[in-house]
Write a protein that binds this DNA or RNA. Structure first.
Length: 260
DNA sequence: ATGCCTTGTCGCACAAGA
């Protein structure tokens, strides 16, 4: 089962690009972030025509996540537990059956948190605490689980072309990185880093100042695998070329191939 | 030091992104 994640920065602006990539990359399951659409406005039919079952958790104008699956969706659950007053659409998980078992896949759009020192940063950290608590719960099931999405965290200096440029950014704060590490330490495998332990691999390049041309990138889109998912990891990759396409997202797809 | 682009919005500039 090939599972991918991609922050598309607006589904309406990106529909043709996403469809072209789907035809090319042929993933079985896709987690999308920043759809920037309400559920009713999501172009479900365009994806159903390609054989995908579609689940969305949308919001007007900002945020919004979705999951596409060629293996159907047994059950989908929106919203991260732990704060009923949180109205931002940033979490959706789905149970998906493969040929050799069921996997739970989560599409995550973790808060950016900038600027630091504001309620946006404390919201990010609180959200990460809720994510850790939920992940802890799910891990007790001892089932294949994939946490996929835009985590808005640069885990290590090697995950940025120019780490010094990010020292005062929420993505690279010690608190953000510590929360990421605590989450991973529950027993997850960072699939990209496991497959590319020493390479400069990035998933985001800013639209501004020719960042992609200078390869001024950062790695902030991640796929965390529970032990039962990591045991079945066959391959992973980053579809960097999509950043050079016409009308690109500022993020690129990240994927894993699991024997499920 | 600042803005650099891009998207969506009851637009005719602005917020938010990272």
């Amino acid at each position: 089962m090939k599972i991918a994640t991609w922050n598309i920065n607006g589904v309406k602006a990106r529909l043709d690009t996403v469809v072209a990539w789907l035809n090319n990359a042929a993933p079985d399951v896709v987690c999308l972030q920043e759809i920037k659409s309400v559920d009713e406005g999501f172009p479900k039919g365009a994806f159903e025509d390609l054989g995908y079952t579609v689940a969305t958790h949308g919001q007007k104008g900002f945020n919004g996540v979705a999951i596409l699956s060629k293996c159907g969706i047994d059950e989908a659950r929106a919203r991260l537990p732990g704060d009923d007053s949180d109205e931002q659409a940033r979490y959706l998980e789905a149970d998906i059956a493969g040929d050799n078992g069921v996997v739970t896949v989560a599409s995550i759009y973790l808060p950016n948190g900038n600027p630091i020192g504001t309620e946006k940063f404390s919201y990010k950290l609180a959200w990460m605490e809720r994510l850790e608590a939920h992940a802890r719960d799910r891990l007790t099931l001892e089932m294949p689980l994939v946490l996929a999405g835009d985590f808005n965290v640069i885990p290590e200096p090697m995950d940025a072309k120019n780490p010094d440029a990010w020292t005062s950014d929420a993505l690279f704060q010690l608190e953000s990185r510590t929360a990421w590490r605590a989450l991973a330490a529950l027993g997850f495998t960072d699939a990209t880093r496991a497959c590319y332990p020493a390479d400069d691999v990035y998933t985001f390049w800013d639209y501004q100042a020719g960042a992609f041309q200078k390869n001024h990138g950062i790695r902030i889109d991640h796929m965390l695998l529970s032990p039962q998912a990591a045991d079945r990891l066959a391959a992973s990759g980053i579809d960097r070329d999509t950043r050079g396409w016409e009308k690109p997202s500022d993020h690129v797809p990240v994927w894993v191939e699991l024997a499920i």
